[in-house]
Computed example of a mutant assay.
Amino acid sequence: MSAASVVTERAMSEPDGPRAVLSVRDLSVSFRSDTRTVHAVDAVSFDLAPGEVLAVVGESGCGKSVTSMAAMGLLPPSATVTGSIRLDGRELAGASDKELQKVRGKDIAMIFQEPMTSLNPVLTIGRQIGEVLRRHRGLGRREARERAVELLELVGIPAPRQRVDEYPHQLSGGMRQRVMIAVAVACDPGVLIADEPTTALDVTVQAGILEVLQSLRERLGTAIVLITHDLGVVADTADRVLVMYAGRAVEQAPVHELFAAPRHPYTAGLLSAVLRPGAEGKRRLPEIPGLVPSLDEQPDACTFAPRCANADERCLAARPDFEAPAGTRHRDVPHLAACWHPVPVPAPRPTAGPDLPADKNKEDGQ
């Protein structure tokens, strides 16, 4: 267990609960146009503890990226945002652009999905990193350049003094992603949002990017919201997982508990569709039947019901609460699910004991 994980676990077990560096409550986001209104996020709540990695997973269009963009205050004017987004106790929902500019890059930062479209192609790498430092730290041009070199070295870019004067098109995709990380952590923000940071990168480069994020967490105590489709990345990186479906949070749990005993049928479906080593060609991967529903409205019902084999009239008539399902063991970090018919908890595997055949065979000398 990493040092940051120990800190997070200790914070989560405090009697009064952890002091969240980022606290989201009943966040809803809708987009209006001339013909329709799309309810992209519906009453999502979560906390992020210092030094914790929270993975947010779900199918495309479930609201993961919209939730993160709302936290950063980067949604377009067509978006209507309600609920609360508190960063170290400061309310960001409804804050003015001037107020948000003071915290973006300094207290909360984001690694965007496409570094080539996020980096300015006509400015050098050093200048783009230095802009954040000059704005929030008041550094001069020469000081900012030296700090940019240090940051490039921190994120694992070779020959940083050479690269600091190069342009984005001169770097590989993996190096551009590392530059995005350097820009995001330039001012040591308490919260880092990583939106699909390993998309379109080969496996080796992905591993390097994730190693950089883990190192930043351990060295700087950065809390990370990791948005990804890759459940393998989640298993290796996250402390806790938030599963979203059709704009809603449907399950939340510590990562190992969620993988071992998912309580929501949607989560169980996602995990069953993961390819296991050695299983190639042996069977067709299970599929979740049906399609993601339209987000033109959010019904007072379970949105997963049309695709769920266990759905009944209750699922179609009332929205389930987001709470600890019956049969869930009490933990300092709760396991929550929004389901009227949660997946049963697997029975614990028995261990060898005096009354088990294993011991009897041992006594018989077999």
Rank of each mutant, 00 (worst) to 15 (best):
R349D: 13
Y167S: 12
A93N: 14
L275N: 01
L226H: 07
S172L: 11
D188M: 02
V234I: 05
R161C: 01
P76T: 14
V7F: 09
E52L: 12
P121T: 07
R36L: 00
R349F: 03
Q170A: 13
E166K: 15
E143P: 12
P121K: 14
P18R: 12
Y266F: 12
S118R: 09
V212Q: 08
G281Y: 00
A279S: 15
V345E: 11
V122G: 04
D312W: 12
P262C: 04
L356C: 14
C62M: 07
A109G: 12
G247H: 06
P286N: 05
H341R: 14
R217F: 08
D230N: 13
P189A: 07
T303W: 11
L27N: 01
P121N: 12
S23P: 02
I227D: 00
R176T: 08
Y167Q: 15
S5F: 10
L75H: 09
D355G: 10
M116A: 08
I157R: 04
I157G: 03
A317P: 09
C308Q: 10
R104C: 12
S84P: 09
T267C: 08
C315F: 02
L48T: 14
L275A: 01
E131C: 02
D364A: 14
T124Y: 01
L213D: 04
V292H: 00
F322L: 13
R25A: 04
D47S: 11
V333R: 15
G281E: 01
V255F: 01
R176S: 08
I288L: 10
R263M: 05
D359Y: 09
C187F: 15
T117D: 02
A148V: 15
T328C: 08
L100R: 13
P121E: 09
E196Y: 02
A279I: 06
E150Y: 06
P50T: 03
P299L: 05
P50Q: 02
S28G: 13
K106D: 13
P50R: 03
P320V: 11
T267W: 00
L75C: 13
V149E: 03
A182G: 05
G94T: 13
D300I: 10
G327V: 08
A109W: 03
D97Q: 14
L27D: 01
F31Y: 12
A347G: 12
L316E: 07
L123K: 15
I157V: 14
F304E: 03
D165W: 01
P289I: 07
L151P: 15
I209M: 01
G89C: 11
K102T: 14
P160A: 00
F259P: 01
A347E: 15
V132P: 07
E211Q: 14
F259D: 01
G269R: 04
A144I: 10
A235H: 05
R276A: 14
A200M: 07
A235E: 00
E280T: 08
G327S: 05
V205R: 07
V191R: 06
L226V: 13
D107Q: 13
G51P: 11
E9R: 15
K64N: 08
L92H: 08
V345K: 11
H264Q: 11
A279H: 11
P344L: 11
D42W: 13
A317H: 03
S272E: 02
R141N: 14
T237N: 02
T124V: 02
P286Y: 05
V149F: 06
D355M: 02
V29M: 05
E297D: 13
F112E: 08
G353R: 11
H335F: 05
A324I: 09
P158Y: 13
A318L: 09
I181D: 04
L139F: 09
H256I: 10
L291F: 14
